[in-house]
Simulated scan of single mutants.
Amino acid sequence: MPQAVVIETLERALRDRAAEGEAADVLVGIALNCDDAEFIEHWCVQVGTRAVSGSPVLGLAGLCLGHTARRSSFGHLSDEALTLAKSLAARAEADPSDVDTRAVDGYDDIRDFLHLW
């Protein structure tokens, strides 16, 4: 999917919760298939910091950072992405109605694949 379409879709979802389903598909798609790690991280961070409490894309942003960490061609995440993933996981553990528990799964992947313990 062209990056311009990804950006448009994710920005729309951040303004209008009715577009979150499509945004979820796009976010997972780039996490699994895009070859630009900075682009993936940027949009996971944007979604993870700008989506409203209770939005399913919050937990998904954390999960997608985990998917990104699992990709052997990348092998790292930025400090900003690591901090966000940890924060989203903590929020999910404290209140799954705020951030769904997929964020915990994503942070577990990050710790496993980037050897952060």
Rank of each mutant, 00 (worst) to 15 (best):
E20C: 05
S73P: 00
A4M: 09
S53N: 13
T83Q: 14
V99M: 10
T68N: 01
R15A: 15
C44Q: 02
A51I: 06
E38M: 03
H42K: 08
T49I: 15
L14R: 05
A94F: 04
H42Q: 12
C34G: 14
E41D: 05
L82C: 09
D35S: 13
A94V: 01
A69P: 00
A31F: 03
P96Q: 11
E80C: 08
A69E: 00
V104D: 11
A90M: 13
E41T: 01
G59T: 03
R71S: 08
V45F: 12
L114C: 10
E8K: 06
I7P: 10
V57R: 07
V99Q: 14
R71P: 00
V26Q: 12
S53E: 15
D79W: 04
V45W: 13
T101H: 13
V6P: 10
G62Q: 06
H115Q: 12
D36K: 02
R17S: 15
E22I: 02
A81E: 05
R102M: 09
R70I: 04
H76S: 11
E22D: 14
R12K: 08
A23Y: 04
H76E: 08
R102Q: 11
I40M: 04
D79R: 05
V47P: 01
I40G: 15
G59W: 02
E11T: 07
W117L: 15
A23E: 04
R71N: 05
D105Y: 05
A51C: 05
G48Y: 13
T9R: 09
R91K: 07
W117N: 15
D16S: 13
Q46I: 08
A18L: 08
I110W: 01
V45M: 14
E38R: 06
A89S: 14
F113Q: 08
R111E: 14
G54V: 03
S73V: 10
I7W: 06
D95L: 06
I30N: 08
S97H: 08
L10M: 06
A13R: 01
G75H: 07
D79G: 13
D36T: 03
S78G: 06
T101Q: 15
A51Y: 09
E93K: 14
C44H: 04
R91E: 10
A51N: 01
R102W: 04
P56R: 00
V28E: 12
C64W: 04
M1I: 08
D35P: 00
F113R: 06
C44I: 02
Q46Y: 13
A24H: 09
A51Q: 06
V28A: 15
V28G: 11
D108K: 03
D100V: 03
G59R: 01
G21R: 08
V5S: 14
R111L: 14
V45T: 08
A37F: 03
E22N: 10
V57Q: 03
G21H: 09
R91Y: 06
G75C: 14
L63Y: 03
V28F: 14
L10T: 03
R70G: 12
A51R: 07
P96R: 14
A24Y: 07
V99C: 11
D98I: 01
L14I: 04
P2C: 10
A90F: 09
A51E: 05
V104H: 10
G48Q: 09
R12G: 09
A19C: 02
I40Y: 04
G106W: 00
A18H: 09
A81L: 06
E20K: 04
D25I: 08
Q46G: 15
I30E: 07
